[in-house]
């Protein structure tokens, strides 16, 4: 529970933005997440990106990272347009954006990423041509890492 004095301090320090930044950001960016990740509806299941990556990568210089939306159609009028990977815990947060087309037939991409030592909550955002942006957050803990300016 936040008392009045703490609340005023938080507002003064800009902390209120931090307190409420995640849902506010998701709304501002128009990003959707499953209501209950352990019990997805059919609609949520086809739109939510699935990440295949090691939870404890042993070499943070080369972390294999695969993103799939295996059940989503890739039709001319309904397909996955893009997949974006963001790692807020890395110096280089933007890990790239894949732009897809219906010609691919399947929305699955893979790459290798640099991850600094420590815990990461990697955001993966897929954009459907009809139903907007959907986010998954993948947690991993890297060692031997590398993601710094050099």
């Amino acid at each position: 529970m936040i008392n009045r004095r703490t609340f005023i301090k938080l507002v003064g320090a800009g902390g209120i933005l931090t307190l409420f930044s995640v849902p506010a950001r998701l709304v501002a960016e128009g990003i959707q997440r499953p209501k209950d990740p352990s019990n997805l509806s059919d609609f949520e299941r086809i739109h939510t990106p699935v990440v295949r990556a090691p939870k404890l990568p042993q070499d943070g210089r080369f972390v294999p990272f695969r993103v799939e939306l295996p059940e989503h159609p890739m039709d001319e009028d309904h397909y996955i347009k893009s997949i974006e990977i963001i790692d807020p815990q890395s110096v280089v947060k933007e890990k790239g954006i894949f732009s897809l087309t219906p010609a691919l037939g399947r929305a699955t991409v893979s790459t290798r990423l640099k991850m600094a030592d420590g815990k990461h909550a990697v955001r993966v955002i897929a954009e459907c041509s009809k139903h907007g942006k959907w986010e998954t957050v993948f947690h991993l803990s890297a060692v031997g890492g590398q993601c710094k300016e050099n």
Binding site: S99, R112, L113, K114
Partner: peptide, 29 residues
């Protein structure tokens, strides 16, 4: 490009590992 048509793009950053390895799928038309 597949048959001259752009079908896939990856906008990359220094956050990608050295010596990049990328894969994706393509429908054989």
């Amino acid at each position: 490009y597949y048959g001259g048509t752009l079908v896939f793009q990856y906008a990359m950053t220094p956050g990608v590992s050295d010596d990049p390895r990328v894969s994706f799928f393509l429908k054989a038309a």
